[in-house]
Amino acid sequence: MIKIAIASGKGGTGKTFVATNLFYTLLLKKYRAILVDCDAEAPNAVAFFETKEIEKSEVNQLVPVIDINKCTFCGKCHEYCNYNAIFILPPMKIINVIEDLCHGCGACSVACIADAISERPVSLGKVETYSVNGLPALFEARMNIGVMSPVPVIKAAIKKIDNHADIAILDAPPGTSCPFIQTVSSADYVILVTEPTPFGFSDLKQSAATLNKINKPYGVIINRAGLGDNSVYEWLKENNTPLLLEIPFDKGIASIYSNGQLLVKKNKKYKTLFNGLMKTIHQLFNTF
């Protein structure tokens, strides 16, 4: 199976739009396709489909619990913690865990020589599995409100991918830092969705630099073509970066999408466009 991440540096360029329409196109062509919504801070892909929830699993992180009766206030756990998540005042016999700062690395448990640290799970979010046409096909990573990092939830969702499928589409979160990297690093190929505006172009270059750094192959889709200017086209040519698809700027698209509907269902022209994209991907990977 192959995994394709749909990503962008800038938010709102049309990642979910491309991911959902491509996924639906693949299903229509009877591929065994999977869609993973990795935008755990703002997941929105599921609502585009008629689905049934079939499984829900919690994603937890371990945080330390300190037994005050056993603690000798030696301070070694505090010294080992690189996230400043353990607050200690030895003369006052005060020691507290600041759970929001804890990354669950377990260093404090290793450090403790008094056997005073145990761990308990706290929820970071969940991964929900939905079926489409009777098969598990949609996985949604959803981070709890107030949690700092979506990375563990994204990781758990990607782990759910069943390798028997032909192709998995990963709808990535925006940006170029940890959540983005967690998603694209597990993909075989990345599709960067951009728009031909100065902001879109600047963020595209940042995403491309990140992908170059981790040696990930990628191609570009220009959404809202017709708005903005030509800089992005020139840059693609100069860098021999493949332009996989252009989606014209069209107020009609915005209106269909804004209602949570799939464009390929509503509009023949776009059905053809996404069929073309599927063929392009097919040519990139001769097998799937």
Binding site: A42, N44, A47, Y257, S258, N259, G260
Partner: peptide, 19 residues
């Protein structure tokens, strides 16, 4: 923005603000 995802995300961010 007036899209179902825009509204969803606005409501999620509002919950953060409430916290």
């Amino acid at each position: 923005e007036p899209s179902f995802s825009g509204i969803n995300d606005m409501q999620r961010v509002m919950e953060v603000l409430r916290k």
